[in-house]
Amino acid sequence: MLFAHDTECGLLAAAALVNTDSADAEGLPDVAALDAFFTAHNWSGRHEHTEAELRSIRALRPRLRRIWHADEDETVEIINALLRDASALPQLIRHDEHPYHLHAVPRDAPLATRMAVEAAMALADLVRSGELGRLRRCARPDCDGVLVDLSKNRSRRFCEAACGNRAAVSAYRARKAASRP
């Protein structure tokens, strides 16, 4: 593990949330999709299951996406704004089966606020450790996905296996076409 468990979870959830906003398809088309996202990323606490909550989470995505395109100073500005907007006050918390970890807003804060703050706290750890290079955009040219490279050798290039497979197939086809007389 490169970072604390809650940092890794926050980073992966932030990238996954950004990737739900794709030119190809809306990854959070309805409240049921948000429910599935909530469960898949092990969120706990308040979840209203409403259209208003869904809209507020969709509105968070562009703010987070900017981080994958920003330099360190702009990233810090975004992180600080996310924390300031939520009046974040970090505290150690233990709940469910998780050991002590940081929460910066109460568990009954709105889900969009908790998602913003969890992402900001995790991203702050990347800034502090000089690891912003672990935030990457997918290497497949026609993909707008983002990723967090948590591999030890910093070799992850694609947002998901499907993008890696598509890139490999494209490269194979290009080599085959080039080798034909």
Rank of each mutant, 00 (worst) to 15 (best):
R156V: 02
A161I: 10
N42D: 15
L132M: 06
M1N: 08
Y172T: 15
I79P: 10
A81Q: 15
F158T: 00
H41G: 07
C143W: 04
D35M: 11
D85Y: 07
E118P: 04
E53M: 02
A174N: 00
R66E: 12
C143I: 05
L17S: 07
S22W: 10
R63W: 06
A104F: 05
A167E: 13
D30S: 05
D73C: 14
T113I: 14
I67M: 04
V105W: 08
S151I: 06
G27K: 02
R65S: 08
N165S: 07
D108T: 03
A162M: 11
S155N: 14
E77T: 12
R137E: 07
A14C: 08
A15M: 02
R65L: 10
A139H: 09
C9K: 13
P29H: 07
Y172W: 15
K152D: 13
P106I: 09
T20R: 14
H101L: 01
H95F: 13
F3G: 06
A124Y: 10
D108A: 05
R58M: 07
P110H: 01
R46F: 06
E97I: 11
R63E: 09
R46H: 14
H47W: 04
D149A: 00
A16S: 14
N42P: 01
G145D: 08
G130V: 02
H103Y: 03
A36T: 15
T113C: 12
P181V: 14
P181I: 14
L28V: 07
H41E: 04
E8V: 10
L28W: 03
H47Y: 09
A15T: 00
I78H: 03
A25F: 10
E160F: 08
C9P: 04
D24F: 14
R175H: 09
